[in-house]
Deep mutational scan, measured.
Amino acid sequence: GLPPGWRKIHDAAGTYYWHVPSGSTQWQRPTW
């Protein structure tokens, strides 16, 4: 699974990851 606080988001551009507490997003899968 993903580290705490991360969500996987799907949209028209593809899949990305959202860090809910900080509001940051990234294309790379977050690592622990």
Score class of each variant (00 low, 15 high):
G1N: 13
G1E: 13
G1F: 11
G1M: 12
G1W: 12
G1V: 11
G1L: 13
G1A: 13
G1S: 13
G1K: 13
L2M: 05
L2T: 01
L2F: 04
L2E: 13
L2P: 05
L2W: 01
L2S: 05
L2V: 04
L2G: 02
L2N: 01
L2Y: 03
L2R: 05
P3V: 07
P3E: 02
P3D: 02
P3M: 02
P3L: 04
P4F: 07
P4W: 06
P4E: 08
P4G: 06
P4D: 09
P4Y: 06
P4S: 06
P4L: 06
P4Q: 05
P4R: 05
P4M: 06
G5I: 01
G5N: 05
G5M: 02
G5W: 05
G5Q: 01
G5T: 01
G5V: 01
W6M: 02
W6V: 00
W6S: 00
W6N: 01
W6A: 00
W6D: 03
W6K: 00
W6L: 00
R7F: 13
R7Q: 12
R7S: 09
R7M: 14
R7V: 15
R7N: 07
R7I: 15
K8R: 12
K8G: 05
K8T: 12
K8A: 14
K8Q: 14
K8P: 08
K8D: 06
K8E: 15
K8V: 15
I9N: 02
I9L: 08
I9P: 03
I9K: 05
I9E: 05
I9T: 04
I9V: 14
I9S: 03
H10F: 09
H10L: 11
H10W: 09
H10M: 12
H10A: 11
H10Q: 13
H10S: 14
D11R: 09
D11W: 07
D11N: 13
D11G: 15
D11A: 12
D11Y: 08
D11L: 08
A12S: 12
A12G: 10
A12Q: 10
A12D: 12
A12E: 14
A12P: 12
A13N: 14
A13D: 11
A13E: 11
A13Q: 14
A13P: 02
A13Y: 13
A13H: 14
A13K: 14
A13T: 15
G14A: 04
G14Q: 06
G14D: 04
G14I: 04
G14N: 05
G14E: 04
G14S: 04
T15M: 07
T15I: 13
T15D: 13
T15P: 06
T15Q: 07
T15R: 04
T15N: 08
T15H: 08
T15K: 03
Y16P: 02
Y16G: 06
Y16L: 09
Y16K: 05
Y16A: 02
Y16I: 08
Y16V: 07
Y16R: 08
Y16T: 00
Y16W: 11
Y17M: 01
Y17K: 04
Y17I: 00
Y17V: 00
Y17A: 01
Y17E: 00
Y17H: 03
Y17D: 01
Y17Q: 02
Y17R: 00
Y17W: 06
W18N: 05
W18E: 14
W18V: 15
W18I: 15
W18G: 03
W18M: 15
W18R: 08
W18T: 09
H19N: 00
H19M: 06
H19Q: 00
H19D: 02
H19S: 03
H19E: 01
H19Y: 04
H19G: 00
H19F: 03
H19P: 03
H19L: 06
H19A: 03
H19T: 01
V20K: 07
V20R: 05
V20Q: 12
V20P: 04
V20D: 08
V20L: 08
V20T: 08
V20F: 10
V20S: 08
V20A: 11
V20N: 03
P21I: 09
P21T: 07
P21F: 07
P21A: 10
P21E: 13
P21W: 07
P21M: 06
P21K: 08
P21N: 05
P21V: 09
S22G: 03
S22M: 02
S22K: 02
S22D: 03
S22Y: 04
S22A: 04
G23M: 06
G23W: 02
G23R: 02
G23D: 07
G23T: 01
G23A: 04
G23I: 00
G23Q: 05
G23E: 04
G23K: 04
G23N: 12
S24V: 15
S24F: 14
S24Q: 15
S24T: 15
S24N: 14
S24A: 14
S24I: 15
S24L: 15
S24D: 12
T25I: 15
T25N: 06
T25Y: 13
T25V: 15
T25L: 14
T25M: 14
T25G: 09
Q26F: 04
Q26D: 04
Q26S: 12
Q26N: 06
Q26V: 05
Q26K: 03
Q26H: 05
Q26R: 05
Q26Y: 04
Q26G: 02
Q26L: 06
Q26I: 07
Q26M: 09
W27N: 10
W27P: 10
W27K: 14
W27F: 12
W27H: 11
W27L: 14
W27A: 13
W27V: 15
W27E: 11
Q28D: 14
Q28N: 11
Q28H: 13
Q28V: 08
Q28G: 09
Q28M: 10
Q28A: 12
Q28F: 10
Q28P: 05
Q28S: 09
R29N: 08
R29M: 12
R29G: 03
R29I: 12
R29L: 11
R29P: 14
R29W: 08
R29D: 08
R29Y: 11
R29S: 08
R29K: 12
P30K: 00
P30Y: 04
P30A: 00
P30H: 04
P30L: 01
P30D: 01
P30V: 00
P30T: 00
P30F: 00
T31Q: 11
T31K: 10
T31S: 11
T31H: 09
T31R: 07
T31I: 11
T31N: 10
T31M: 12
W32H: 11
W32V: 09
W32M: 11
W32G: 09
W32E: 10
W32N: 10
W32L: 09
W32S: 10
